Simulated scan of single mutants.
Amino acid sequence: MAERAEDDATLVARAASGSEHAFRTLYRAYVRPVYWLAHGLVGDPSDAEDVTQETFMAAWRRLPELELESDSLLPWLATICRFQAANRIRRQRRDREHTAAAADESLPATVDVEHQVATTLLVDRILDAVRGLSPLDQQIFRLCAAEGYAYQAAADELGVSHGVVRNRLSRIRTHVRAATGTEGA
């Protein structure tokens, strides 16, 4: 890594205040190590590029709340990169499973129409309950309940703390159970 005129803490403070030049300097300094970490995690150059970009986008959003605890920004970026890579791998796995399920065109021997109708009605009630939530709560529900994100991964994606996601998701689940009449479920 080439020597920079300013240390990471100074650049982080300037970037957090909105300096695109400072953030660009940090990006140039760390894009290669982040890319190679992403490549090692996802194993594909194209996915590694995407994970690298997602890492820096998440970093840009989270810089104002960062308190740099070392001389280097790299450990923090590596943590974000690991979460972004895990999210990508999870999405790809889910997509493959859905694609495989869609390719299987065989129907079960018997179809329980009553069960399908009850399930459809429950899903509709859940969606109605979720529509009544705040935009942040809707995003938390989508990420954690629908897409399977872990609390910290969802927190990183939304730029909030782990505790915010955990507490709000608990309240969301209670709200949805009450709205759908499934409190005992």
Results as ranks from 00 to 15, higher is better:
Phe23His: 04
Asp137Lys: 05
Arg166Pro: 00
Arg142Ser: 13
Tyr149Asp: 09
Ala101Phe: 07
Glu49Val: 04
Arg173Asp: 03
Phe141Gly: 07
His21Ser: 13
Ala13Ser: 13
Glu3His: 11
Ala22Lys: 05
Trp36Val: 11
Ala9Leu: 08
Ile126Met: 14
Phe141Leu: 07
Leu169Arg: 10
Asp156Gly: 07
Ala48Leu: 05
Thr52Tyr: 00
Leu122Asn: 12
Trp36Cys: 01
Glu69Leu: 01
Arg171Glu: 15
Arg61Tyr: 02
Ala109His: 12
Tyr35Ile: 00
Gly132Pro: 03
Ala58Arg: 05
Val160His: 09
Arg131Ile: 11
Gln116Trp: 10
Asp47Tyr: 07
Ala155Trp: 07
Gln139Asn: 11
Tyr151Val: 08
Asn87Pro: 02
Thr182Met: 10
Ala78Phe: 10
Val12His: 02
His39Val: 00
Ala155Ser: 06
Arg62Leu: 10
Ser161Ala: 13
Asp156Ile: 00
Ala153Cys: 02
Ser170Arg: 15
Leu11Ala: 05
Arg125Tyr: 03
Leu26Ile: 06
Thr99Trp: 14
Thr10Phe: 02
Thr55Met: 04
Trp36Phe: 15
Tyr151Glu: 12
Pro64Ala: 11
Glu49Gly: 13
Glu105Val: 14
Gln138Phe: 06
Trp60Phe: 13
Ala118His: 02
Thr99Gly: 12
Ala86Glu: 08
Ala15Leu: 06
Ala178Tyr: 08
Thr174Phe: 11
Gly40Lys: 15
Phe141Cys: 05
Leu169Asp: 01
Ala153Gln: 05
Asp44Asn: 15
Arg173Pro: 06
Val34Gly: 04
Leu37Tyr: 05
Asp71Gly: 11
Tyr35Cys: 03
Thr180Leu: 07
Ala78Gln: 07
His115Ile: 08
Val130Gly: 02
Leu143Ser: 03
Ser72Asp: 06
Leu121Met: 04
Arg91Asn: 10
Phe56Val: 03
Leu11Ser: 02
Glu20Tyr: 12
Ala100Ile: 01
Ser72Gln: 06
Gln138Met: 08
Ile172Asn: 00
Asp8Asn: 11
Glu114Gly: 13
Val12Phe: 08
Asp44Ser: 14
Trp36Met: 08
Ser17Pro: 03
Leu26Met: 12
Pro75Phe: 10
Arg82Lys: 15
Pro33Lys: 01
Pro75Tyr: 09
Leu143Asn: 01
Gln92Thr: 07
Glu97Trp: 11
Arg62Gly: 04
Gln138Leu: 01
His175Arg: 11
Val12Thr: 01
Ala9Asp: 01
Glu97Phe: 12
Val123Gln: 14
Pro64Arg: 08
Leu143Cys: 03
Asp95His: 08
